[in-house]
């Protein structure tokens, strides 16, 4: 009898689980990891959606889309989350993306955004993070970084595999234009390694393997708030800072299109956005009712924010990445 009860309980639990549709969101690993915003967002959305939200993570941001391309029409992905402004034309050219249909009037970005397929979910500014205790005088511009001591080791990300890496390459391109290759060659002795993704690079920096790491102006907020630690700070560059807008998109072949629509709507709500500052450690794309955490006020505020036109990036990206690779491999 007891066995019967147990069995029927088991089946009913399974049935319950099967009744709920699953929404698959493909994203990068640091977003979905238990230290990232993923679990909290999952909880918040599942509280309202009667569904099972599943993050499927790949190890870098540019890998998200190629994963969907590899899987083709049979892919179980409903949503891709974690591409950025520099990849949207390439992403659109795959023909896999559907319009999101979200009212974007609540968006509060430093620039205007009217893209009907890619919906911003957070934004930030690239910056080099350094340890104030070991390096009290960080470089204040790219020129100073290029001329710095060869002992100053930096870790950056690969522009082919990671959006911060791509962002840095574009940042250098916007500052130096045709001289970019020359600048990379000069920087080369100071580049300890080029990692595939952000988390790898940041981890190396925290372990003391490098003196500076490419990350965001918001990264120090993490250390100040979560660790009460203020020795890690962003170096303010007088050239300005590259800006990144991270986006989500719904897929044309989404197995659960209605659920996907609901999630896209959910992205701009306070429930989602309020998790961003202290979850993904980026800026929310709408004004928060409760405002930003206090320590965000202490962050570097870029005088100039640099962002290239997405079409121009798409046209030149391949050649620029070749140029970057070539400059670093000689």
């Amino acid at each position: 009898m007891r066995l019967f009860v147990l069995l029927s309980l088991l089946f009913s639990v399974q049935a319950l689980a099967q009744n709920k549709p699953t929404l698959n969101v493909y994203t990068y690993d640091s977003f979905s990891s238990e230290w990232g915003p993923g679990p909290k967002i999952e909880q918040a959305f599942e509280a309202v959606c009667e569904c099972d939200l599943k993050f499927v993570s790949v190890d870098s941001s540019t890998g998200i889309l190629s994963r969907v391309q590899l899987e083709g029409a049979g892919s179980s992905a409903d949503i891709v989350l974690g591409l950025d402004n520099s990849l949207i034309v390439d992403a659109e050219n795959t023909g896999l993306i559907a319009p999101h249909g979200v009212d974007m009037s609540s968006l509060n970005l430093p620039i205007s955004w009217d893209n009907g397929k890619f919906l911003p979910f957070d934004f930030g500014y690239f910056a080099f993070i350094y340890n104030t205790e070991t390096h009290p005088n960080p470089p204040g511009s790219f020129d100073e970084l290029v001329e710095a001591d060869n002992d100053l080791k930096i870790v950056i990300q690969d522009p082919g595999s990671s959006t911060p890496g791509l962002g840095l390459m574009l940042w250098v391109k916007s500052v130096y234009g045709d001289r970019a290759a020359e600048v990379w060659q000069k920087l080369k002795p100071r580049i300890l390694t080029v990692t595939k993704g952000w988390s790898e690079a940041y981890g190396m920096f925290l372990e003391g393997e490098a003196d500076m790491v490419l990350s965001y102006t918001t990264s120090p907020a993490y250390h100040m708030i979560a660790e009460s630690e203020s020795r890690y700070q962003a170096a303010s560059f007088s050239d300005g800072h590259g800006m990144q807008i991270e986006v989500a998109a719904k897929l044309k072949n989404a197995p659960n299109p209605e659920l996907a629509d609901r999630f896209m709507q959910f992205i701009l709500t306070q429930d989602f956005q309020s998790i961003i500052p202290m979850g993904n450690w980026m800026f929310p794309v709408v004004s928060l009712d409760e405002g930003l955490p206090e320590d965000f006020g202490k962050l570097v505020n870029p005088a100039i924010s640099l962002m290239m036109d997405a079409g121009e990036i798409s046209q030149n990206k391949g050649g620029w990445i070749d140029e970057f690779n070539q400059a670093l491999s000689n």
Partner: peptide, 21 residues
């Protein structure tokens, strides 16, 4: 490997498939 200056063919193939498709 540590970046473009130390990439082998096998890794370049992986990158072409995994990141650029």
């Amino acid at each position: 490997g540590g970046g473009p200056q130390s990439t082998t063919l096998e890794v370049a193939i992986y990158q072409a498939l995994r990141f650029d498709f």
